[in-house]
């Protein structure tokens, strides 16, 4: 069976992209193969592990459960873009200081989810952090360091807000 390839255009990390893709190509493969943004990882291709989590139009999404043709006109942010813009540099620094990653395969997805959590809940308790990130598997750390890192960033951001209020 042959299928018609389609031209899609979208913004990825603030850059406009236009590419011709097969409809069956997932957004994860599109980012990795067509745009060479290999920071988005593919762990299960079934939306379960969270390694491919990216941000689409301001919300996290699993790039393996979305077809590239679906994101026509959307704004996609990957770990590369978020790193370059520095939008969650404090999370990255806290993960680094706390060793909240080992092999690093799940890390881009963890950061994407952590960043979204902190925009929705500036003072999450440890249990809320665990619940928000529970759909992202990590096989190395045992998770505690990740919870610590996110908690630290929440506290630091709140302290900063507190200082500004004073």
């Amino acid at each position: 069976m042959t299928t018609e390839k389609r031209l899609i255009s979208l913004s990825v990390n603030g850059e406009l992209q236009a590419k011709i893709v097969e409809p069956r190509m997932s957004l994860a493969d599109f980012l990795r193969i067509e745009l060479e943004l290999t920071g988005t990882h593919v762990g299960c291709e079934s939306g379960v592990c969270g390694a491919c989590t990216v941000n689409i139009n301001g919300q996290t999404a699993r790039a393996c459960t979305i077809l590239a043709v679906q994101v026509e006109g959307d704004e996609v942010t990957t770990i590369e873009g978020a790193s370059e813009s520095g939008e969650f540099r404090d999370l990255q620094d806290a993960f680094h200081a706390r060793n909240a990653l080992q092999c690093g395969f799940c890390t881009p997805g963890m950061l994407m989810m952590s960043a979204e959590l902190l925009t929705q809940n500036s003072k999450p308790c440890r249990q809320e952090i665990r619940e928000y990130l529970s759909g992202n598997y990590c096989r190395c750390t045992g998770y505690e360091a990740i919870v610590d890192a996110v908690e630290t960033v929440a506290q630091t951001r709140n302290a900063r807000v507190g200082e500004q209020d004073d």
Partner: peptide, 21 residues
């Protein structure tokens, strides 16, 4: 001491085998 090589992983700049082209 923090792992120096963890920084690239945090920035999506790891180089796993499937990233090889």
């Amino acid at each position: 001491v923090p792992r120096p090589n963890a920084k690239r992983l945090l920035n999506g700049r790891g180089n796993y085998t499937d990233d090889t082209k």
